[in-house]
């Protein structure tokens, strides 16, 4: 069995994406614009992290 750590990590990222998006939209409507932008940035950061994990997993195989 392959190391499933990377796999789990990607699933966690998906989960975080959903949570951050939800928070971002709500904070936007609550007019906490700074908080909304923080969540937006977090969402953006998760993408390169996901790519890194994928690349790393590819190398291991």
């Amino acid at each position: 069995m392959k190391c499933n750590f990377n796999f789990a990590a990607l699933l966690v990222i998906l989960m975080l994406n959903i949570v951050f998006t939800q928070k971002m939209v709500h904070q936007y409507y609550f007019e906490n614009y700074v908080t909304a932008m923080i969540y937006c940035v977090l969402n953006l950061v998760l993408f390169p992290v996901a790519i890194l994990i994928y690349k790393q997993d590819q190398k291991k195989a």
């Binding site: 998906l14 969402n43 953006l44």
Partner: peptide
């Protein structure tokens, strides 16, 4: 497994791109 992981990365990309307008209007 690999294909599914690729899909997950793609999903992260979609989330990132669709977050942009929200950050934009908030700014």
């Amino acid at each position: 497994r690999r294909g599914f992981m690729k899909t997950l990365v793609g999903a992260a990309g979609v989330f990132a791109v669709s977050s942009l307008p929200w950050g934009g209007v908030a700014a």
